[in-house]
């Protein structure tokens, strides 16, 4: 057999082989294309709807709520403590050593004052 004839024979045998298409593949591709068509929302919405993003968002929300609650509680307790201290300090400052409000207590009951309104000393 000549080289050319042999090559022709090989080519003919190669040509005789093929792979028939599987209808199931076409059906699967069609279904995937149809599914893609249904999800017509923007890409960023689809990205946000991914399970990983949703889980991360949920986790972040829970952490934020917990942190917020803790901060509010701390602030409320701090406010009560601080206001109590201020009140105590203010009253103690107003009181003198003798328990009065810093005004001398006149035991003689005299109503005469040493200093008159005119400023003259008697």
């Amino acid at each position: 057999m000549s080289l050319e004839k042999n090559d022709e024979r090989i080519a003919k045998l190669i040509r005789a082989t093929h792979a028939p298409a599987d209808p199931a593949v076409l059906a699967r591709a069609r279904a995937r294309i149809a599914a893609m068509g249904e999800s017509s929302e923007p890409a960023w919405v689809r990205w946000l709807a991914r399970p990983a993003v949703l889980a991360a968002s949920g986790g972040l929300l829970a952490v934020t709520l917990a942190a917020g609650g803790w901060m509010l509680r701390s602030a409320a307790v701090g406010l009560v403590e601080t206001s109590g201290t201020i009140e105590t300090v203010a009253i103690s400052d107003l009181l003198g050593d003798d328990g009065s409000y810093g005004l001398a207590f006149d035991e003689s009951g005299s109503s005469e004052s040493t200093v008159g309104d005119s400023g003259s000393v008697r």
Partner: peptide, 20 residues
């Protein structure tokens, strides 16, 4: 496409995946 994929990959399952 199937013939090309099957001839190149020598694996029908993989060839079908490629066609899809």
């Amino acid at each position: 496409m199937t013939t090309l994929a099957a001839s190149m990959l020598r694996d029908r399952t993989e060839a079908d995946d490629v066609v899809e």
